[in-house]
Design a protein around this nucleic acid. Sequence first.
DNA 1: CTGAAAGCGCTAACAT
DNA 2: ATGTTAGCGCTTTCAG
Lengths: 336, 336
Amino acid sequence: MSKPKITSLDVAAKAGVSQSAVSRVFSGASASKSTVQKVRDAADALGYRPNVLARSLITGQSKIIGLVVAYLDNQFYPDALERLSNALQEQGYHILIFMASGQGTDVERVVGELLDYQVDGIITASVGMSDDLTKRCEAAGIPVVLFNRGQDDTRLSQVTSDNRAGARKIADFLVAAGHQKIAHISGWEGSSTGRERKDGFIDALAAHGAELAALADGKYKRDVAAKAALDMLKSTQPDAIFVGNDHMAFAVIDALRHEARQAIPGDISIIGYDDVLMAAWPSYDLTTMRQPSNRMVEATVETLLAQIVDRSVAPQKIAIDGPLVVRGSARKPKDL
Amino acid sequence: MSKPKITSLDVAAKAGVSQSAVSRVFSGASASKSTVQKVRDAADALGYRPNVLARSLITGQSKIIGLVVAYLDNQFYPDALERLSNALQEQGYHILIFMASGQGTDVERVVGELLDYQVDGIITASVGMSDDLTKRCEAAGIPVVLFNRGQDDTRLSQVTSDNRAGARKIADFLVAAGHQKIAHISGWEGSSTGRERKDGFIDALAAHGAELAALADGKYKRDVAAKAALDMLKSTQPDAIFVGNDHMAFAVIDALRHEARQAIPGDISIIGYDDVLMAAWPSYDLTTMRQPSNRMVEATVETLLAQIVDRSVAPQKIAIDGPLVVRGSARKPKDL
DNA sequence: CTGAAAGCGCTAACAT
DNA sequence: ATGTTAGCGCTTTCAG
């Protein structure tokens, strides 16, 4: 019913030591065996735990990392979130999470609030940063890591997969399998990730003397991608589609199979990007580029913490390579 | 490079007012038009924003809600997380998220850390609370809401769907469709949600003079559920399976279709529970009980905030009803 | 309405 | 090694 709020002072009184002695014990500073014992006992008896917020006020370290995330319906992100949370927890950090459903202005507000909480660092998943925002974070001395999103700004760190290389592997695979009319449903044009995969794909196709039979912006949305695929089928009739991420690829497969009665890969090959867990489910059995979220998360945490510990550490741009995971949704080259 | 840390004192100096005047302006206390103006201008010029942590220290309100979540691979939870985050953000609260992958001891540690952050309230998604933990939260005056998990403890609030009623609807539907050998792959026996659905299902079947042809604990895991389904097919050969949640139901469908070459619902009917987004995807087209996550989230936030605002408000047990969403994975009763 | 002063719970010099 | 003292940045009496 009541809320006693046990403080270090209470513990000190009970243990018969000074308040700073209590502080020392809990912040791991020097203290004699006997003091530590007395303090621990008193604390346990009282159920005392240090107030992290009060500590933050003075140390200037909140041990809180702000995470801004846009979509959670694409399984890649819940998965990454889980890994990020675990990795950071291990280092004594915790995640304050913010959804920035919309674009621009939403991110603006959200990052502002994050700053108010004195977070030690910020990770944005699939969300960009305005120049103004970047300035504010820099001014506040808060390092930022863009996760799965690139941006031409040396003040920002970023961790992505090697999108161009990935797209190239897909193009190589599709061409080797003898596809003649290859189409692409890209990720949102406004995202670096979407653009890089598209450009890389087109370039790699060109290197084979081929070119895109059709192109549409799927905007990372299921319905948009599905409609694009159906439209392509009516007009261009491609024999293969590289879809900008798995999340959209599932929608494309569903639409093609169930609305257009296409056999996959008999009538048309589909390749995705990300290799989310669901890609391995038999219903989809999706051939896709793996984005190694475990390694991406490792790199993200490492860079972020390095910058937190030492402000002079420079932001990094890290692109992680992954394999093409060959499954059943795309025709395979003969020599495989 | 540097980290100037603009404080209310800086703003006060620039605005030519006292520090407390600045505080008043930002905490919405009384202040004259002119003061407000001067302070706002100075603050904007300096890029000042109040330090929420320092504020918390004195107000005793951190505006942080701790969220403990176990699985993020079951789409129901990312979806709920997104809604929770948005709903709380609207009320000026933010989510500090913790993954409690394992059981018991993990939750213990995690909730302890949550308490250290002086969270104003705690939501646990699909995670139970030990008695000791409950005591500590109560002692600290921190209200707790169990989301999608029940527990016989009057100190805890909980928001679930009406699991027994839901299971009954499924039993009624299956019996009406003329199924003779009805099996159940339950959620984890150790969870109230899993037990209630199972018990409700058995009772409802009994009311029809029927009984379970087979029963297995799917433990909320894809592989466990899939194996259970395959085993049942070999032994009992059920003509319908109610699977304890959609997440497992997808695995069951995959296994039955692709490993056992069963037609669904031709050979066997499958019904799930939750109605996650994926249930509507054509590949699964799953008949399932809807757990209205929007209403569950509303109820969760409402109860939690009510208790935060007024400590004397009693914890609540809320069970929300939802409809059976009829799709194509289960044979339909003739008269439908 | 406004400024001065006290203090939230803690850490970090500074002495002893 | 331990206690004393001074704040971290803010809100909140309390005078005026």
